Simulated scan of single mutants.
Amino acid sequence: MARILLVGQETGGIGKSTVVRGLAEAVPDAQILEIESVHRLTEFKTGKANEPGRVRHFEMRATREAIEASGGKAARAELDDVINALHMVKAASLVDIGANTSASLLGILKEEASTLREAGIELGLVVVVAAEAGALAEGSKLLHVAKDWAGARFVVANAVRGAVDPVLLKRVAGDAAVTHLRHFDLEEKTREVLAAGQLRGIAKLDRASLTKETSPALAGRILRDLTAFRLAVMEAVKPAALWLVEG
Rank of each mutant, 00 (worst) to 15 (best):
D96T: 03
A69T: 02
S93T: 15
T42R: 13
K48L: 14
L79S: 02
F58L: 06
K48W: 11
H57S: 11
V38N: 02
F44Q: 13
L41T: 01
N50S: 09
L106C: 06
T63A: 10
A99C: 07
E36C: 08
I83H: 02
K45Q: 12
A91D: 15
A62R: 13
S93G: 08
D80Q: 14
A92V: 02
E59F: 03
M88A: 15
S93H: 13
K90H: 12
V38S: 05
D96H: 05
G72F: 07
A69F: 03
A74P: 01
G53I: 03
L94E: 04
R64W: 08
S102G: 05
L106A: 04
G53H: 07
V89C: 14
A92W: 05
H87A: 14
I35V: 15
K45H: 08
D96M: 05
D96K: 02
L86R: 06
L33Q: 06
R40D: 09
E43V: 14
G98A: 09
E78Y: 03
R76H: 05
R54A: 00
T42M: 03
L79V: 01
T63G: 11
T46H: 11
S37M: 04
I97H: 00
S70L: 07
G71C: 02
G72T: 10
L94V: 08
L106Y: 04
I83W: 01
A49C: 03
R56L: 10
A69Y: 04
M88S: 15
D80R: 14
A92R: 12
S70Q: 07
H87V: 00
F44T: 05
A69N: 10
I83T: 08
E59V: 07
E59W: 00
A92S: 15
G47R: 12
T63C: 10
H39P: 00
G53Y: 06
P52N: 06
S37P: 00
T42H: 01
D96A: 15
T101H: 13
A75E: 02
T42Y: 00
R40P: 01
L79Q: 02
S93D: 10
M88P: 00
A75R: 09
R76S: 13
M60V: 12
G98D: 04
F44G: 04
